[in-house]
Amino acid sequence: MVSKNKELGLFLKKKRSTLRPEQFGLKFEKKRRVKGLKREEVADLAGVSIDWYVRIEQGQNVNPSTAVLLSLSRVLQLNNEEKRYLFNLSDKKLPIEDVTSASISNTLQKFLDNQNPSIAYITDSKLTIIGWNETALKVYGNYKEMSEKERNSVWRAFNDDYLKELLDNWEGHTKLRVEQLRANYNYYENDNTINEIIDELNEKHSLFNKWWNNQGIMGTPEGQKLLHHPVVGDLYLSYISFKSTEIEGAHITIQMPIDDYTKNKLEQLTLE
């Protein structure tokens, strides 16, 4: 049976072989013998000595700290499951703030970008938009310039006139968002930011209060929708949503053009 230390070394070696030096701005050599990153490159990027890193890959008992494991996770671009595996092999516990962090990895962002000219975005458990592609910005508004509160789908549905004009079925959209937020309450019940938003909406909007207390059935993860864009006109879309395995409680949504008519309009928007 392979020891944890040996398994840890093999795991790190395997992960560095999947990376390319160009990803880190390192010079690529045509005669490069090593597949992926070199040991010294990983050590330098992670901020540890090459001797220490060699020992850990050799399966020696070096007892890496939590900070070092997080640094290696970042350099080796580990997903959440791989991070847990790395920490388990090191007999350490992955910090809870790292498990629940809602950062968009390079791979996930590339996935969103590759969906253009379809609309692609990610909502966290609080229904706040945390990731998007260019088409999403052109259709739904510039998330880059919005505050966290303004990027919250529920708050925005009740308070943003642009979104109200854009949505063909504002009531259906907004009711669904409220029900989704209510269903996710266990994820954020101690989060002051979203609870302040909920209190504000309860106080100012009777429909929110009604839908929040209604144990309704949420919509399906697939369907169709119509948007009325102020520049290119009507957009006919089909959509699909699925859970992210990387970010706890988050969902990825792709809204695709139903026909070439809509596809051409979305392409036009992304070129502007």
Rank of each mutant, 00 (worst) to 15 (best):
Y188T: 00
A120T: 03
W170K: 14
D260G: 13
F28Y: 07
K138D: 02
H173I: 05
L227V: 10
G59M: 00
R32S: 10
W132F: 07
Q60S: 14
N192A: 12
F111E: 01
E150R: 00
R32P: 06
G223K: 05
K263I: 03
K263Q: 13
E134D: 12
G172Q: 12
K126L: 06
Q115F: 10
E134Q: 13
T66E: 10
S65M: 08
L201Y: 04
T253Y: 01
P95V: 02
H229E: 02
S241R: 01
K144T: 05
N214H: 15
W52N: 04
T100W: 09
L8F: 04
H205S: 02
E189S: 10
N184Y: 04
Q23L: 15
V54Q: 07
F24H: 05
Q77H: 05
I56E: 11
K13F: 08
K204G: 13
L72H: 04
Y140I: 04
T245E: 12
S147I: 05
K14S: 15
D160Q: 08
E40M: 05
L266S: 00
K138Y: 04
W170A: 13
F87V: 00
G172V: 14
E203T: 06
S49L: 05
S118E: 01
T18N: 07
R182F: 12
P64H: 05
W212P: 08
L127R: 06
W170R: 14
P117S: 03
G47H: 07
V68C: 11
I96T: 07
A120N: 03
F24T: 08
S125R: 09
R84E: 06
G141P: 00
N169V: 10
N209L: 12
L86K: 02
L166I: 12
W211H: 02
L69G: 04
N114C: 03
L163K: 06
S65K: 06
R151T: 01
I50K: 08
Q109A: 07
I217G: 10
V75F: 10
E200W: 11
S3C: 02
A250V: 01
Q224W: 11
L207G: 04
G36Y: 09
L45N: 13
